[in-house]
């Protein structure tokens, strides 16, 4: 009996909470939104920031001409950065290292982890192409000395060299190193390092703003029922469930 009473009380509390949540109608909400003013220049800067960071150089050039928004870095460097990224993604790591050094020799000098990961990727490519002797020589000459200096490099090196022990990569516990996703991961790391060297953020601002929107909505959900943006791609307001 007491259990039943307890459940009744809990239900009552939930209802009271729901009742205490402020309900904001679509009309009120849209009025509040229309009162917020956003400058066109700010919007254009956000778009330009996105195009530059993601490397859409031609689109950025056209957008500059059409909107008059100036990018905060030289657009020519984007082409170089994207060439590096593309080289890594297609497995031409040597070419990528050369291009990075042409762009800014300090990038690899000041970032030993990035350099190790590029060398590791190069070893992976040699193993992928069945160049066993070359892979061994490369591991001995280039990677082992760096592994000795750093425990985390050593573990990465162990995992990579272990690929040599498996003819059938589908049964290899470290087989994911040969996946395309590993190339993308390395390419993304190089891309971020180049952007940092150009005093530019590693990530575009637009996705960050969208994350903030979702975060703010989640916090507001606790206090009010309001028209929500559930689908970011359409940005449609959806009425609150009453």
């Amino acid at each position: 009996m007491s259990l039943f009473l307890l459940e009744i009380r809990q239900l009552a509390e939930i209802e009271a909470m729901a009742a205490s949540k402020k309900l904001i109608t679509r009309e009120e909400w849209e009025k509040k939104l229309s009162d917020v003013k956003i400058r066109k220049e700010d919007m254009n800067k956000l778009v330009m920031n996105f195009l530059v960071t993601e490397g859409y150089v031609e689109a950025a050039e056209k957008f500059r001409m059409e909107s008059g928004t100036e990018p905060d870095i030289d657009l020519a460097t984007i082409t170089d950065r994207m060439a590096v990224k593309k080289a890594v993604q297609s497995g031409n790591v040597e070419d990528a290292i050369e291009k990075v050094n042409d762009l800014n020799p300090e990038i690899l000098d000041t970032n030993p982890q990035l350099f190790f990961h590029l060398q590791q990727q190069r070893l992976i490519e040699l193993i992928r192409n069945g160049k066993v002797e070359e892979a061994l020589e490369f591991a001995q000459e280039e990677l082992a000395p760096r592994g000795e200096e750093n425990q985390s490099f050593l573990e990465e090196l162990e995992r990579t060299v272990a690929l040599l022990a498996f003819e059938d990569v589908s049964n290899c516990p470290v087989g994911e190193l040969l996946d395309i996703s590993q190339r993308l991961k390395t390419a993304s790391e190089v891309n971020a390092a180049i952007l940092t060297s150009q005093s530019h953020e590693k990530d575009p601002k637009l996705p960050s703003l969208l994350k903030m929107l979702l975060c703010a909505q989640n916090q507001l959900d606790e206090k009010a029922a309001y028209p929500r943006v559930n689908d970011l791609s359409t940005a449609t307001l959806e009425d609150p469930a009453v």
């Binding site: 061994l136 591991a139 001995q140 990677l143 082992a144 592994g147 050593l154 090196l157 162990e158 995992r159 060299v161 272990a162 040599l164 022990a165 498996f166 003819e167 059938d168 049964n171 290899c172 516990p173 470290v174």
Partner: peptide, 25 residues
Amino acid sequence: ARKYLAPWGATHMKELQRVIATLAF
């Protein structure tokens, strides 16, 4: 290694990795 060590990869990968790495060192 491919013939005799790889079959142990599923259960003893840590030790296997360490020993295979001697190829580089």
